[in-house]
Simulated scan of single mutants.
Amino acid sequence: MPIDAAEQLDYLARIVDTTAPRTRITRLPRHALAAMACALVAGPASVHAGSVVVTIIDGRKAHADIALPAPGGGSYTAEFEIEFDNPQNLTVACLGLDADVLDATEIADVESRMPDVGNQVIDGAFPVRVTVEPPVGCGLQFDDEVHVEYHTIDLVYAPFSPYRLMKAPLGLGFHDVTGAVVSGSVRARGSGGSFSEFVIAKTLVQDYAGDADAGYDALEARIDDPAIGLSAQLTLQADLDVSRAAFDAANYAQAIARLDDLDLHCAALGGPALPNTWRSARDLVNAEGELVTLSGNIKFALGRLDGVP
């Protein structure tokens, strides 16, 4: 019996490999699904389609292979990986990971939400956004911070790279969550206590001291959260104060070491004194994950100031 177009699109959107030992699903852009549906009706044809293939590894890591068609021909390719601490219900469906190519209007929107508008832009060589938006009722949950790596060969790495890993709540302002940028060609690493949108942005004029100073302000404001217990606040504030004093004295290695202490204290305090759980119901604030993310981004700026490329 003939299959109508809607049924074909639904079928193609659910291509699942059930023979592999890992959970795998391929998500295709709707325009690509439509083209493939037409091909099913018209007969064999050459279809240039994009895909986002998500694999769950060992129950604690999600890996996405991304290949999306570029407007002028060819494709944008990337790998996106998230590593979790103590995840529950980590499945492809519960993760809700997808990617899209930004058009001119979307690029303008994303750039308007950057922390340093006008100085942080989307490189035309890689205008790809990854969105991680777990369904509310799926039960995904994790502790502490997630570790994120966004890797593409479409951007060229150079020492003291201007590229940054940016993260934003869906439709809201982006924040720099970069912990490292290494070769491969560009491999941007960071962390987070929540989701949703991720992009690699290019910083036109780099100001590491200004970034570190702003990062300390953001970290101090986060520590003041009344959801964090008083003893935990005092401990973390002491770590921050010592680190900032070292930064002010241009002792960047010492400033990093004291932030390492803060990270260790965050790990030890995680729980009732320092909320450290995120879940898809969005009813908890993962303060521990956000603090460690802020700390990691400050350490990135301090490392640059100390000559680390």
Rank of each mutant, 00 (worst) to 15 (best):
I223Y: 05
I223V: 14
D224R: 12
D224G: 09
D224K: 10
D225K: 08
D225V: 04
D225Q: 08
P226H: 12
P226I: 15
P226T: 14
A227C: 02
I228Y: 06
I228P: 00
I228L: 09
I228A: 03
I228W: 04
G229T: 04
G229E: 09
G229L: 07
L230S: 11
L230T: 10
S231T: 12
S231G: 02
S231I: 07
S231P: 00
A232M: 08
A232Q: 06
A232D: 03
Q233I: 04
Q233G: 04
L234Y: 10
L234V: 10
L234N: 12
L234W: 11
L234Q: 15
L234H: 10
T235G: 01
T235H: 02
T235P: 00
T235A: 12
T235F: 00
L236S: 03
L236C: 05
Q237N: 11
Q237S: 14
Q237P: 01
A238H: 12
A238S: 14
A238K: 13
A238V: 01
D239G: 02
D239I: 00
D239A: 14
L240D: 00
L240E: 01
L240Y: 04
L240P: 00
D241G: 07
D241W: 05
V242F: 04
V242Y: 04
S243H: 02
S243C: 08
S243Q: 07
S243V: 06
R244E: 11
R244H: 09
R244N: 14
A245Q: 14
A245R: 15
A245W: 06
A245N: 14
A245T: 09
A246I: 04
A246W: 02
F247C: 06
F247P: 00
F247R: 03
D248L: 12
A249C: 10
A250E: 13
A250R: 13
A250Q: 14
A250P: 04
N251Q: 13
N251H: 07
N251P: 05
N251F: 02
Y252D: 10
Y252G: 04
Y252T: 06
Y252E: 08
A253H: 02
A253I: 08
A253Q: 15
A253N: 13
A253R: 08
Q254C: 02
A255E: 03
A255M: 06
I256A: 11
A257L: 13
A257C: 11
A257G: 15
R258T: 10
R258L: 05
R258N: 12
L259F: 08
L259E: 03
L259G: 06
L259Y: 08
L259S: 09
L259C: 09
D260A: 10
D261I: 03
D261R: 00
D261P: 10
D261K: 00
D261A: 06
L262W: 01
L262V: 05
L262R: 02
D263N: 11
D263R: 01
L264S: 14
L264P: 01
L264E: 15
L264A: 15
H265Q: 08
H265M: 04
H265A: 10
H265D: 14
C266A: 15
C266T: 07
A267L: 10
A267D: 04
A267Y: 13
A267V: 09
A267N: 06
A268H: 05
A268C: 03
A268P: 00
A268D: 11
L269T: 02
L269F: 13
L269M: 11
L269Q: 08
L269S: 05
G270C: 07
G270P: 09
G270L: 03
G271H: 09
G271T: 07
G271Q: 07
P272Q: 11
P272V: 15
P272M: 12
P272G: 06
P272Y: 11
